[in-house]
């Protein structure tokens, strides 16, 4: 029997469409309009054409922010993904301690971004902070407000502290879904611990790990609050990532035109990366017949 097609269900999507129109489409259209004009306030605009795009695309300041952003995202992915997997593999699979570990792992995820920033801003201080004071006591002149390397280390350690648990929890969920039969088969074959990880656990975690990489990449690519609270983008512009630079441009300098062009290029990069991840994920699902 042919399946009955009833397209009236599409009307149920209308509320979402209206919501998205107000929260995303209209603001995005406004940004596009701003990106080709100049303004000094009072809703008075002057036609500028593609000038702002040209300026943003050839601006060394924007290139620098993009470079720092890519470096930051690359570094935190390189740390968080292996670390998260390692933690998930080491976590107890069932019983009392499994629950304790799960709660402990979830804790950093529950803390708001600005609080995380404040915690690490204080922790890193040489005079009163636990980390900063300890490092100073060891003879290291620790100052994240003066030394770019120290600022980077602080911001990266903070992000690793905040978000590795997400990767760990996702990897843990992936591990839990592997049927025992696989492990029993590996035992019969006398497979080593490494072989079990390499040929059973890792392939079975592939799906959730892709989601973890996507989430962490997107989140780190849009990071604003934590580095803003800890370093304010400094020292100099050492930790001025894309969104920090963008806000400085839009709100600090009130350069709405260049900031709009900047945010559209930012949006395009995010759209491209999201599409690549989405395509890889859906094709992986199809390949696995899910």
């Amino acid at each position: 029997m042919d399946k009955v097609q009833n397209n009236k269900a599409w009307f149920l999507v209308l509320p979402v469409l209206v919501l998205v129109a107000f929260s995303a489409v209209i603001p995005l259209m406004t940004v596009v309009n701003y990106s080709v004009q100049d303004t000094f306030g009072n809703n008075v605009f002057f036609w500028e054409g593609l000038g702002w795009f040209e300026q943003v695309l050839t601006d060394s300041r924007v290139h620098g922010a993009l470079g720092r952003q890519l470096a930051f995202s690359g570094i935190i992915l390189a740390i968080q993904i292996p670390l998260g997997i390692a933690i998930a593999v080491c976590m107890p699979k069932k019983g009392f301690w499994a629950s304790v570990c799960l709660v402990l792992m979830a804790l950093p995820l529950l803390i708001p971004w600005n609080v995380v920033g404040t915690i690490w801003q204080i922790m890193g201080r040489g005079d009163i902070g636990l980390v900063g004071y300890s490092l100073s006591a060891l003879g290291i002149d620790w100052n994240y407000a003066r030394d770019p390397l120290h600022a980077w280390i602080t911001v990266i350690v903070m992000d690793v502290w905040h978000w590795t648990s997400l990767v760990a929890l996702l990897a843990y969920a992936g591990l839990q879904s592997i049927p025992q039969a696989y492990y029993q088969a590996a035992k019969i074959d006398q497979a080593s611990r490494w072989s079990v990880f390499r040929y059973i656990e890792l392939p079975k975690m592939q799906g959730v790990l892709l989601i973890a990489i996507l989430l962490r990449f997107m989140d780190s690519f849009m990071i604003y609050t934590e580095p803003f609270v800890v370093t304010g983008g400094g020292p100099g512009s050492a930790t001025s990532f894309l969104s920090i630079d963008l806000v400085k441009m839009a709100l600090g300098q009130f350069d709405l035109g260049p900031a709009a062009a900047f945010s559209l290029m930012y949006f395009l990069v995010i759209l491209l990366v999201s599409w690549v991840f989405y395509t890889v994920m859906t094709n992986l699902d199809k390949a696995e017949g899910r």
Partner: peptide, 9 residues
Amino acid sequence: AWMAWTGPT
């Protein structure tokens, strides 16, 4: 007016 529409956009 706040949306700053132009002909080309």
